[in-house]
Amino acid sequence: MTDKGTLFFKNKPVIKSAFTIVGPKESQSELGKFFDICLKDDRYGESSYEKAECKMLTMSMKRLIERQKLKDSDVDAIISGDLLNQIISASFSARDFETPFLGVYNACASICEALTLGATLIDGNYAKNTVCSAVSHFATAERQYRYPLELGAIRPAQAQWTVTGAGSYLVSEHLSGYPVISSATIGRVIDFGITDVNNMGAAMAPAACSTITRHLRATNTTTSDYDLIVTGDLGALGSRLLKELAKKQGLDLEPNHVDCGELIYNIDEDEFQGGSGAGCSSVVFASYLYPMLKSKKIKKLLLVATGALLSTLSSQQGESIPGVAHAITVECSND
């Protein structure tokens, strides 16, 4: 590890496959046709939304492993995270696998944390295959962080909409032809004093800016070296703030920045600034961007998943919202 927090993976771990399951609202979006499974029922036939979220994660991992004609025992570790208290979706879904499990929590940045850890295990020759995944569900997140679904409350215009979706990735030893995770930067926790719990994008933008700047410096690259710089779930407002912040650092993100939260929804109801949640960057990258890397339409991208590290208790106690962002460079392999 050089330049504190940036990891260079010399053995070129690859993302061998990805699998996504999303809810009904996500299926109707522009990206709808790219997802592997689109649920018609956001309860997924379960008695509660929490169980549905867990099942989404379980099924996405099961189908991912099956698609590669692997068995549970071929996978060395499952690394997954979600937004619920005690990350129950991640832990409970691991019950169904005969695979060692690491649960991670970095709010909506969990997927990049999982992919970084997965790639590290592969790179260090500690594992041959790891499954990295993240899930979120609109109904469970609303209930944990906000109000009951049927309460007639107004969502403010800076609010975002938690994505119902699970995305799983198989990170494996180097194989030619697959997108390589070449480096990763572990984010610092940054807090500029935003206290509005509805304004997650604003809370996370400084962390995204910090991580992008650090990653570019450590890897000795500039924004134009990447076909795309993809942030997780800053939303429209957060993306704008990120660009403003980056400009002050002398970075121009305007030409090649996209945000998964902005991509995922057609803004026609109360999504306002776009999607959010651990599932947001996870499903958008897995279904839409990863295949483009695989088919070499995109050569190199920087995925920066962003997380707002608040809890309902912390915000009620008047704490501001710390943000974190982890970045990974994914590029087409040269051989």
Binding site: Q158, D191, F192, G193, L237, G318
Partner: peptide, 20 residues
């Protein structure tokens, strides 16, 4: 929390200016 060491006044003002 509010009014403490990490409070970045310039940024918070930018946020309130850009927030719809």
């Amino acid at each position: 929390g509010k009014n403490n060491a990490n409070f970045n006044k310039e940024y918070v003002e930018l946020v309130s200016k850009l927030t719809p």
